[in-house]
Design a protein around this nucleic acid. Structure first.
Lengths: 108, 108
DNA sequence: AAGTTACTTAAATAATCGTTGAAATGTAAT
DNA sequence: ATTACATTTCAACGATTATTTAAGTAACTT
């Protein structure tokens, strides 16, 4: 189970339009990822701005980087998001799935 | 599918230690929820601070309130969190589950 | 109706965040 | 070496955020 502070950091990292868009783009890219400059172009953001956001996402563990020549490829780290979701839904309805009369049935 | 701005709002609402704890408490409570004062006591936060946080969570659609006498019961609204998670994982690995060689297998 | 309880609102303050532009770093081609 | 390209770092600004205290609203009790 992730720690609370780590989950807060991941949530905060995603709670910003540009970073959320970047993350989703990387999720769609899969393990190969995408170069920093290409992401900046797709999102109409300056390289400096994106670099700042990549740092935030990286520090939260949501993405990882890999150098390839003079390009830096970023890709999504799915484990942290899974941990985040697990943390949010933990102990849903008191840990009693039978009592979970929620529309989308999260428990169990 | 939720809108980007709505997802950002929900993520931002959860990206704060006290609010995250309150939300998890309400998730564990299930549909019955818990009174505002009881939550404040459990989290060692002042009523004013909690009221501010409840407003933030409510506005994001993550919780709903119900008045019962002079008590206000808050409970988690699971649909918004489900929508949030769906938004994050949408189009994972280009929408091709077979290509998803991610440890926890999110796609498909 | 007077008093108590439960919660919300408002104003004020300190801290954090996102963006920009310029300079700096690193990497590869000529 | 020098030139070009890709990305990061830095300083600074305006905007947003969390908390506190104090005052306000609403509902139950006697």
């Amino acid at each position: 189970m992730m720690e609370s502070s780590q989950v807060v950091e991941a949530l905060a990292a995603l709670a910003q339009p540009t970073r959320l868009a970047a993350y989703r783009l990387l999720v769609a890219c899969g393990p190969e990822g995408m170069a920093a400059g290409q992401i900046a172009e797709k999102l109409n953001a300056s390289a400096a701005t994106m670099s700042f956001h990549f740092k935030t996402l990286s520090h939260a563990g949501l993405i990882v980087s890999r150098q390839d020549g003079r390009f830096v490829y970023y890709s999504a780290n799915f484990e942290v998001m899974n941990g985040m979701v697990a943390y949010l839904t933990e102990n849903c309805c008191g840990g009693n799935p039978a009592a979970c009369n929620v529309p989308d049935k999260i428990c169990g």
